[in-house]
Design a protein around this nucleic acid. Structure first.
Lengths: 249, 249
DNA sequence: CGCGGATTTGAACTGAATCAATCGACGTGG
DNA sequence: CCACGTCGATTGATTCAGTTCAAATCCGCG
């Protein structure tokens, strides 16, 4: 365990697969060296808790692979996923003593962590890094607000279609040859269970399952297995998501 | 009109009522001078459009008084308010060519505007200002996610109670003597119409009206007029908002 | 082969939407 | 000064989408 973490610590940022797409992309090689000194790779299994709610902030991270859910839970047990963190997104709430929500691995996950104090120091000394993180946060805010529309105003079918469309955009495809599939087609693995999808969409498991079956029956999607989805035509899926599919007729 | 704007332009930031609570609070007196040079006061009436959707960004602003709604509208006419901007909040999406949502005055409103280019230049030259705006954005993101829980998981009654609680926290009180009212009491004016409240909560006008009547019947609130609300005990309202009021019994 | 968790499907129920009517405050014009 | 029209809000009756409760079915795994 300790041995493992040492080996991982030595892996340098220069070989990082997602280097240029993360907040680290703002750093010079020299700055990157000081970051790599404090960075440490960590792996989580699906279901592992990465950051606990209300706990003091101890680290930030870049997601290297996998999907992490940010979740809010009320005392009576109701849950709502308030954000999904994909590679190469940034994980953590800067400038806060504690963590505003639960972060749990939705799939097996690899992240590159930075201790809280060291990273905030780096932020203060490198306006370029802070700027990058700021832009990141602005985009997250845009996404959150986009999702507020989904939660507040869309029907169950539109919600499920919106979710699939989101995943199709962000999740790596399975064997994605545009030759094999059409130009507007996609094939991917769902990173969430039905229960997670329900918590993301403000629905129940049963309704999610029913709407997936509906979309399948209509030919908008194919369910290869419980988790693997093929979308023959993303434009059709999108029109289901926006509720303007009968208007076309 | 032109005369008016000149007079307003000359009013300096030093006398600004909300100076220390806005992003401007991060600036030195000298920096403030350069900001006041580009700042300009503008007034809007309830219902006026302040920033149009998808339009190129032309200005940012600090809200001096009033409430502004940020709204998303779909092609088929469904609406969702994705944020409320109170004084002394910041209005606008930095670093974006265009505006991601409609900003409309919910009440009569006064804002202090800064031209797009001048302000972003100031941002680049003053990391302290950008930092302040960043913290601001992080708080907005937290609020947005908090609201996602409301939209996704709360019942109509809980939604309406949550809304009233939010307003009670942020809206200036009417004649708020803690002697006159109890220590946990509040009295304020609703900055939104029933239609706006519905669009904020993902409900219909009728449901909002019914739930307000319910809360009134239960004694959780009093409706002085259509717009003016008295909350005898905010803790009771909060328990309605969280749905843990029958647990107390 | 059988067990346990995840998923699907069915049937009944219910909370919020929809449809419809009324009320009330306010400003305008007769 | 009062009748009228408009707009926002309330209230009632009915409908329906999504939940709840219940039972299969599927699937990975010891």
């Amino acid at each position: 365990m300790a041995h493992d973490s040492i080996r991982l610590r030595q892996s340098s940022c220069e070989t990082c697969a997602v280097r240029h797409r993360t907040v680290c992309g703002a750093l010079s090689n020299e700055e990157l060296t000081s970051l790599s000194r404090i960075g440490r790779m960590r792996k989580f299994k699906a279901g592992d808790i990465i950051l606990a709610d209300e706990e003091p902030t101890t680290f930030f991270a870049n997601v290297i692979s996998g999907v992490i859910k940010l979740e809010k839970t009320s005392v009576d047990g109701r849950q709502q996923i308030v954000g999904l963190v994909f590679a190469p997104d940034f994980l953590g709430r800067a400038y806060s003593r504690s963590n505003p929500y639960f972060a749990q691995a939705a799939t097996d996950t690899e992240i590159c962590t930075f201790p809280h104090t060291g990273f905030e120091q780096l932020l203060r000394n490198h306006p370029g890094l802070e700027h990058r993180l700021f832009e990141n946060t602005l985009n997250e805010l845009d996404s959150a607000r986009e999702w507020m529309f989904v939660l507040g105003r869309k029907s169950a079918q539109e919600k499920v279609a919106s979710f699939l469309h989101l995943i199709a955009k962000r999740q790596p495809m399975i064997g994605c040859q545009p030759i094999e599939l059409g130009a507007h087609a996609a094939r991917f693995e769902l990173p969430l269970t039905r229960a997670d999808i329900a918590d993301f969409l403000g629905l129940t498991i049963e309704t999610v399952s029913r709407q997936l079956s509906n979309l399948k029956r209509q030919g908008t999607i194919q369910l290869v297995s419980g988790r693997e989805v093929v979308v023959p035509d993303l434009r059709k899926l999108e029109s289901k998501a926006d509720g303007d599919d009968e208007a076309v007729a």
